[in-house]
Amino acid sequence: MHMLEVKDIHKSYGDLEVLKGISFSMNKGETAVIIGTSGTGKSTLLRCINQLHPPDKGEIWLDGVNITDPKIDINKIRQKIGFVFQEFNLFNHLTALRNVSIGLEKVKGFTKEKAEKKAIEELKRVGLKDQAKQYPAQLSGGQKQRVGIARALAMDPTIILFDEPTSALDPELIGDVLDVMKSLAHKVAMLVVTHEMGFARNVADEIIFMEGGVIVESGPPKQMFQNPKKARTKEFLGRISTLYGKD
């Protein structure tokens, strides 16, 4: 049994059919990278997976549970699906520490002390122990994003969804965030939408190329980069490599 199974997901906004039947699966601890031009439905797919925007058709199974079942307590399921945003979306009125601990306290019912203790551990994991008392507006973009990752990690998710986590960062800050993500590989499953081909090549177990609301091709990085089956994949990877550098 796969940890995550996405089965024939369809999603429309009004008359616009964005996802036209997406299916794939992931194993425990695996890292999959989704690539594709903008407007292709990558963000929509992530939002379907954690039911921020429930799909119109199709099923999503996580750890053997059909989470698209309307009877399910979605707030419980969401704790198991972390989400990291391009725009960070930190809670502006809370310190880095409280950003990480508030979910533990309010959602998991930890005491404040226990929640903050665990939050400190998570901040250490992303290299921000010293910034615990700082507010989001006092952090750099890269630090903000690492708090965002710590916030997701704190809930002990089985999978974290990343929606272009480095796209809003200055180039010199991207590395720190990618390093943190790399350090999580095989500890927690990650489904990452990104244009960082170096990360895709070196960290991903699987690369999924999406276009026009369908998966054009998927496979391990080696196959995708060296031997793509579809001409379209080859063309896209060629273009993106010149844009974003080979590694």
């Binding site: 954690n50 969401r78 704790q79 945003f85 725009e87 979306n89 809930m155």
Partner: peptide, 15 residues
Amino acid sequence: IPSGQMVAARTIGMT
């Protein structure tokens, strides 16, 4: 208040 904060709260399981 940026709506993303509400979205983020929902993603960690808050009602």
